[in-house]
């Protein structure tokens, strides 16, 4: 579904990605792990071109989207949902308006169609009683679930999660992971950057370990967690697994 080829990304003189190749098939749940500064988030942001690779190709359904016109990139982004570490709900809109905005303005749905979709999504997220709350009136976990509903409302083919629980209080992490697990069970294609190793082990069809701008090792959760081939992977896991 999505293929990244030889992705390099430089910020000034700092090289964050050093020739990364990544292939994500339909229905896969790819979890990217690794130390801070490894380039995990940057790689994820290259998939929907929030970050433009310095060189390399991003191929979405056969088309290299780094070479196409901006309007077509918008079209591609419609089909790639993203959830952010800092949540980024639209602060001036209620939960339901956060969810209906893009379907109405981008897809041209009517207000009632969009609200119908938004209502059922927010109910699925356990937020049926928070439709008209503003982000400032919601907890972090609730906000992140609204953000997931907002992305799902565009009916994307793939969902990107950029450390979705890293900014949350510990007691709110589970409610977000539960919602994500439900998506996995629905067969959604997902790429997830996370530090939640238990979750990664449980849902990943493939784990990718990144360090220093490169993919060091990839494999099934069992291969990576029980039997890492690379010393750097083993070192990282020994530091974070308690």
């Amino acid at each position: 579904m999505i293929r990244l080829e030889k992705i390099y990304k430089k910020f000034g003189r700092l090289e964050v990605l050093k020739g990364v190749d990544l292939n994500v098939e339909k229905g896969e749940v790819v979890v990217i792990i690794g130390p801070s500064g490894a380039g995990k988030s940057t790689l994820l942001r290259c998939i929907n071109l929030l970050e433009r690779p310095t060189s390399g190709r991003v191929i979405f359904e056969g088309i290299d989207i780094t070479r196409i016109d901006g309007r077509v990139v918008d079209k591609v982004r419609e089909r790639i949902g993203m959830v952010f570490q800092h949540i980024n709900l639209f602060n001036h809109l209620t939960a339901i308006d956060n969810v209906t905005l893009a379907p109405m303005k981008v897809k041209g749905l009517s207000k009632s169609e969009a609200e119908h979709i938004a209502r059922s999504l927010l109910e699925r997220m356990g937020l049926g009683d928070k439709l008209y709350s503003y982000p400032s009136q919601l907890s972090g976990g609730q906000r992140q679930r609204v953000a997931i509903a907002r992305a799902l409302a565009m009916q994307p083919d793939i969902m990107l999660f950029d450390e979705p629980t890293s900014a949350l209080d510990p007691e709110m992490i589970k409610e977000v992971l539960d919602v994500m697990k439900a998506l996995v069970n629905d067969g959604m294609t997902m790429v997830i950057v996370t530090h939640e190793m238990g979750f990664a082990k449980e849902v990943a069809s493939r784990i990718i370990f990144m360090d220093d701008g490169c993919i060091i090792e990839e494999g099934t959760p069992k291969e990576i967690f029980s039997n890492p081939k690379e010393e750097r992977t083993a070192m990282f896991l020994s530091k974070i697994l308690y």
Binding site: D74, R77, M82, N88, F90, N91, A102, V106
Partner: peptide, 13 residues
Amino acid sequence: RGQMEAARSLGLS
């Protein structure tokens, strides 16, 4: 900046 990024990620111009 995240507000702009979230909007663009949804396909808004």
